[in-house]
């Protein structure tokens, strides 16, 4: 790691001020991604602002009937929180499908959103990467791209967003509460992460120096019919090749409300509201699910090594919707939801 200075912020305002007044600063909470990136020389901040003393680690109900997840609450404390397990089991399941118990004990809710792609070329400073070094090119296009994007990619970047938690947050339509030099604001989850376009160095829509202080879940948790299906090269402790968060609200066998979000396929958690709308008012049957799966993947483009993800994505959508229809079981929340 390159030398840097380190301070530990006591207040949100102090952290934001410290960031504004420093050269090449970065926030550090759990550190599980940024320390790794600093060891690899991909991230080179010269000043770190520690966030783990901030009073942001609580999980509490909101006035609107939802749940507010503090930005520095750990992924483990969030996944095992009784309110999350009971009202938002999809979120528990997704968090527990990611990383390892040790990492989940360190990683925070805000940090989970801020983690960067695990694209091999992004990590390898001997290769070109438009995300790491804008204008240098993309090693993954025409390279080995098994883990890369099939939807929403650009000619500059085909990296994928690596989070499991964020796929559930996308399906649940969480809000991201941030504080920055210009004050505080709320970002809809679908607007938080972005597609690469011509500026793949930007993973999200935060302005410089803005700090995530909380995630808010709306009242509706889809606790009866949910599934987080994660497909990967080994059954535990691996990133998703394709994952699907599916939630349904059923009246008998008719679908009243439905949301789908895909992980491992794009630069952000992938939602396709037009495709989701095909579920509404329809019977919860495999033939309905297959139509929706076709619609979600209709514009998918393989890059060679990842062509398999297109058919895998279709089948994963169908399977996740079948699992959600059957009803999530509380015991499923403990172990990951591999088929």
């Amino acid at each position: 790691m390159n030398p840097f200075t380190l301070t530990r912020a006591e207040t949100v305002e102090g952290a934001v001020r410290d960031f504004r007044d420093s050269d090449s600063p970065a926030f550090i909470a759990g550190g599980t991604n940024i320390i790794d990136l600093m060891k690899e020389n991909v991230a080179r901040p010269t000043h770190l602002i520690g966030l783990n003393k901030l009073p942001l680690n609580t999980i509490e109900p909101t006035a609107e009937g939802g749940l507010r997840l503090g930005a520095t609450a750990t992924n483990a404390d969030t996944a095992w929180h009784p309110e999350v397990q009971c009202r938002y089991p999809l979120l528990s399941q997704a968090i527990l499908a990611g990383a390892s118990p040790q990492l989940r004990n360190m990683a925070t809710n805000g940090g989970n959103l801020m983690q960067r792609t695990r694209c091999y070329y992004f990590y390898d400073t001997a290769t070109p990467c438009n995300k790491r070094e804008p204008g240098s090119g993309c090693g993954a296009i025409g390279g080995y791209n098994r883990i890369h994007a099939i939807l929403g990619a650009s000619e500059q970047c085909i990296a994928t967003h690596p989070s499991d938690m964020c796929i559930a947050l996308a399906a649940l339509e969480a809000e991201v509460h941030v504080v920055g030099p210009g004050g505080s604001r709320v970002i809809k989850f679908e607007d938080f992460h972005r597609l690469p376009g011509n500026t793949p160095e930007r993973d999200n829509t935060l302005e410089p120096g803005e700090l995530i202080v909380a995630l808010e879940l709306p009242k509706k948790g889809f606790e009866k019919h949910f599934s987080y299906l994660k497909l990967r090269d080994r059954t535990s402790y691996a990133f998703a090749l394709v994952s699907v968060a599916a939630v349904l609200e059923l009246d008998g066998s008719t679908i009243e409300d439905a949301r789908l979000a895909l992980g491992g396929v794009a630069h952000k958690p992938w939602r396709d509201k037009a495709a989701e709308a095909l579920l509404i008012g329809q019977p919860a049957t495999t033939s309905t699910f297959k139509k929706v799966a076709e619609a979600v993947l209709k514009d998918a483009v393989g890059q060679g090594t990842n062509d398999f993800k297109i058919e895998l994505g279709r089948r994963a959508i169908v399977r996740a919707l079948q699992q959600a229809t059957a009803g999530g079981k509380a015991s499923d929340v403990f172990l990951n939801s591999n088929p």
């Binding site: 380190l6 530990r8 550190g31 320390i35 118990p101 040790q102």
Partner: peptide, 19 residues
């Protein structure tokens, strides 16, 4: 590198001692 911090297991390689 797993150790226990306040009874919770973490990877000691991915965290700064000063924190």
């Amino acid at each position: 590198c797993t150790v226990l911090v306040d009874g919770k297991r973490i990877n000691s390689c991915l965290t700064l001692a000063m924190l």
